[in-house]
Design a protein around this nucleic acid. Structure first.
Lengths: 155, 155
DNA sequence: GATTGAGTTGATCTATAAGCCGGATTCTGT
DNA sequence: ACAGAATCCGGCTTATAGATCAACTCAATC
C-alpha cells in the first residue's frame, strides 16, 4: 500500500478506495477501515481495521490531564468513521461533512490518496501538491513537544 | 549489482531493468522491486523487494508526529511504486509521472542506472554527469539534521 | 555473415474509476 | 399521521489508463 493516486469525490461526498489498495486490504484480511482527522495537517487518515483497533485502544487507555493527549483523543477518536466492503466487494466511504471541511475538500473535487504502508492519507489535491513542492499550507494544526506517553504510538 | 548503464525511457514512461541487473535479482530470489524518490537529490532509488520491506517497515514504525519523520515518510513511502517480473521474465517499470518530474526525466530520454550493491539509483543522464564532474545541481531537496531515529536506516 | 539475445516500440485488451440514474428509506413540516 | 422532500444506497454504462502481448531492430558473438 504505497504510492499515491488521485481520485474524485462525487457530488454526494462519496469516495471509492482504489482497487490496488482494496486488494491489498483484502489480502491482509482487513475487513474495515476507519477515517479520521490528521492531528497536524488539513488532511484525513485512513487506518485499516486492525491498525485502528490498536491505535484507538492505546489512545483511550492514556489517562491524565495532559492537554495534548486530550486534544489528540478528541481529534482522532471523536471524528472517526468506520466503513467496510459492500456486498459487491467494493469499498465506498461516505465522508462526513465535518471531515470534508477539515481537509478542505469541496465536492466534486479531486483528492489524493497517499499510501504509507500501514495507513493512508487523504488530501485535497491542491494542498498535496503544495506539500510536495514545499509550498506553505494555510494551516498546520499541531506543533508541539510530544509527551513520552505518545511516542510509542505511530499515528 | 554494481556498475553503470544508460537506458531509455519510452514515450509511455516505461523503463526496462537491464538484463545484467535482472539476473542478479533473480539469483538472490528477489521477486519485486520498489522505485521511489531519493530524499536528497533529483533522482530515484530502486530497492530489491527484501530491502524495501525492511526500510519501509522501519519508516512506518517511527512516530509520525515528528515533522522530519513525517516528511521522509511522505517522500519515500508516499511515492513508492512496486513492480515485479512479467510472465516473460522481464521487468518493466511504468514510472509514475510525478517520479519522472521529480528526477527531471523527460521522455523519451536517456537515463543512467547506477548499481550501488543493494540498491540502484536512476538519474537523468545530464544530472548524473554533472554530479560526476562536481557541477552543481539545480535542486537538492532535503537538507536537515537527522534525528537519532533515522540514523540507523540506510536509505 | 548468421544467429541469438536484449532493448525498444507499437498494438490490443481488460479492468476500473467516474458519472448517471432510479429506488428506497428517513426526515421534516404541516 | 400523512405527504413531500431530501438524502442515502445500489446498479448500470462508458471512457480511460494500465497491463499484456507481439514484433521489430540493433548489437554482440561465434
Amino acid at each position: 500500500m504505497f504510492g499515491f493516486t488521485t481520485i474524485s469525490i462525487d457530488a454526494k461526498g462519496r469516495l471509492a478506495i482504489p482497487a490496488k489498495y482494496r486488494d491489498q486490504l483484502r489480502s491482509q484480511n482487513e475487513e474495515s477501515i476507519a477515517v479520521t482527522r490528521d492531528p497536524q495537517y488539513p488532511a484525513l487518515k485512513i487506518y485499516p481495521g486492525s491498525i485502528w483497533d490498536s491505535i484507538s485502544s492505546e489512545l483511550q487507555s492514556l489517562q491524565g490531564l495532559d492537554p495534548i493527549v486530550r486534544n489528540l483523543q478528541w481529534t482522532i477518536l471523536g471524528n472517526a468513521s468506520v466503513s467496510s466492503f459492500d456486498p459487491k466487494g467494493r469499498m465506498l466511504i461516505l465522508l462526513p461533512s465535518e471531515l470534508q471541511d477539515y481537509a478542505e475538500i469541496k465536492k466534486p473535487e479531486k483528492v489524493s490518496i497517499i499510501g504509507m504502508g500501514n495507513k493512508f492519507e487523504v488530501w485535497n489535491e491542491k494542498n498535496w501538491e503544495m506539500r510536495q513542492t514545499g509550498g506553505a499550507l494555510s494551516t498546520e494544526i499541531l506543533e508541539v513537544v510530544l509527551p513520552e506517553s505518545l511516542k510509542k504510538i505511530s499515528f
